[in-house]
């Protein structure tokens, strides 16, 4: 079965965003595939390369990076949300005259069309948070 995930919760608040990452691993472990993970609203914080979490808490960024690098999962941050939360790639940082980008390269900025495209082509759309 082909899945897509929609993540709306901030990784800094509650367990929902990390539950999404664990769910994604579970989906792949069962032999299903993931078309895309789309991050919306506060969920875009998942892509932060600059956020610092307490060392004795579980990593927020690495589970997603592993999904992208080991399983080729596409990680898309809603660009309209991402800009508001300070999640910029190098191109947007240049465009808005910010010193540098803030997102990890495993993530890309994308329009809502990428969410629509995912919903149109998958068997299951699972949302986290909201």
């Amino acid at each position: 079965m082909i899945y897509a995930l929609l993540v709306m919760s901030s990784p800094a608040s509650g367990q929902c965003a990390m539950t999404a990452a664990r769910f994604a691993r579970g989906v792949l472990a069962r032999g299903h595939s993931i078309k895309r993970v789309f991050f919306l609203d506060a969920g875009t914080g998942a892509g932060s390369a600059t956020a610092v979490y307490p060392q004795d808490e579980s990593a927020r960024l690495q589970p997603w990076v592993d999904l992208a690098e080991q399983h080729g999962v596409e990680l898309s941050l809603c660009i309209a949300s991402a800009l508001k939360y300070g999640m910029l790639d190098e191109a947007e940082a240049t465009r808005y005259d910010r010193r540098r980008g803030t997102i990890h390269p495993a993530f890309t900025l994308a329009g809502l069309g990428q969410l629509v495209d995912a919903a149109a082509s998958v068997d299951r759309m699972v949302s986290f948070g909201g």
Partner: peptide
């Protein structure tokens, strides 16, 4: 849509998702 109009950014985001879905003729 569960969010009141001005209490959460998800209120507008949810309407935007609906509009985008329609714009792509889904």
């Amino acid at each position: 849509i569960r969010h009141s109009p001005y209490g959460s950014s998800l209120a507008r985001a949810s309407v935007d998702v609906a509009l985008a879905t329609a714009a792509f003729e889904q």
